[in-house]
Design a protein around this nucleic acid. Structure first.
Lengths: 189, 189
DNA sequence: TATACTGGAGAACGTAGGTTCTCTGCGGTG
DNA sequence: CACCGCAGAGAACCTACGTTCTCCAGTATA
């Protein structure tokens, strides 16, 4: 088996396990079993468990941002793209056993003791905030709207994860619509 | 040393350590050192580490709810009490190294594997949602406003924890004010 | 004053878990 | 066809960690 395939098996297995159960409760034996490759092979591809955790979060950021952008591409106006963020979240909330934002969870677990994990989590949040800020600017609304929408999205993720109910996406979406419309009216006044 | 004092020492030490570093990275040796009482004593008072975690979360819920209620008691109208939630959060965000909502963090770490932890976290969130719902009802706004404000509060906590910046409280507060006023206008129409 | 009992200190135990090491098997080369 | 080298399986190593156990000290009672 070539390195790329083995690396992909390991990262996909780690992603499934870390997302489902958290990071510290997943041992390397669990990862070995889930990936179907040996520990020697895994350690040949990655220097440490911490390195695997970091790469998993980096790729989750990439696929998350790609997903939210693709949801935005389905509609035309910046306002609709902003609301599509919550449609994207609802789609995520409905997938299997959603457990909240994997980045927030990782930060809660390891943020104080693993600076690289904290850094990847902040980068993810900064990427998301940048995306929303860009749309807010395109919509003509004041810049102060962007963090408000982001807070709604963050809150929806934690709440949906804790209660296992995707209704939080719709609640956040309704609030976002109200905030956007209020901001646009204020911008025109 | 009597049991009540020893129990309090252990719980206070556990609260400091779990809040600062997460639960799984804190060992019983750490707790023994921080509390200044022996492991034999600690295990004489609590059946297990899991039991300590649960009791810490229960008392954190109690003090958190007490804090948000006390902040609400400083003002008169339900609208001001709703906004005082965000003042309470800002006060919390400014205390030392704030790391996000300890309940969200605990759920992220242990939710899948420790059902009692998940239950205490859900109870906390339900208590908070109940408090906000009560205020929303008093204010005459539609019930749908309550979850929207709660999502803002949840999002503010995670964001403040990750970026170490209390500005999220003010951003959430501004959004809450807009939502409340929109809801009250809609209720009068 | 001496002996016995009980509570607690912290070392020990047993398991978990990240990482490394030894041995085996397979492939390549002579 | 045989031998050598290398890559990898998974057991072993070493540390961490939750919980228990042994021993000691202090207090109470006779």
């Amino acid at each position: 088996m070539d390195d790329d395939k083995a690396r992909e098996l390991a990262l996909e297995a780690a992603e499934r396990l870390f997302t489902a159960r958290g990071i510290q409760t997943v041992g390397m034996d669990d990862l070995r079993n889930e990936a179907g490759i040996s520990l020697k092979r895994i350690y040949g591809l990655f220097p440490s468990k911490d390195a695997i955790v970091e790469q998993v979060l980096v790729r989750l950021n990439r696929s998350w941002m790609q997903g939210v952008i693709e949801f935005g591409e389905r509609v035309d106006s910046p306002r609709d793209k902003l609301l599509a963020v919550f449609d994207f979240l609802e789609d995520r909330f409905r997938q299997g056993d959603y457990r909240g934002c994997v980045f927030i969870n990782a930060f809660g677990e390891l943020g104080p003791t693993a600076p690289l994990v904290a850094e990847v989590v902040r980068r993810h949040k900064a990427d998301f905030q940048g995306y929303v800020s860009g749309l807010v600017e395109s919509s003509g609304a004041p810049a102060s709207l962007a963090p408000q929408l982001v807070l709604l999205a963050e809150g929806a993720q934690s709440t949906a994860g804790i209660f296992g109910d995707p209704v939080a996406a719709g609640q956040a979406r309704a609030a976002a619509a109200t905030l956007i419309d209020a901001a646009l009216v204020g911008a025109r006044a």
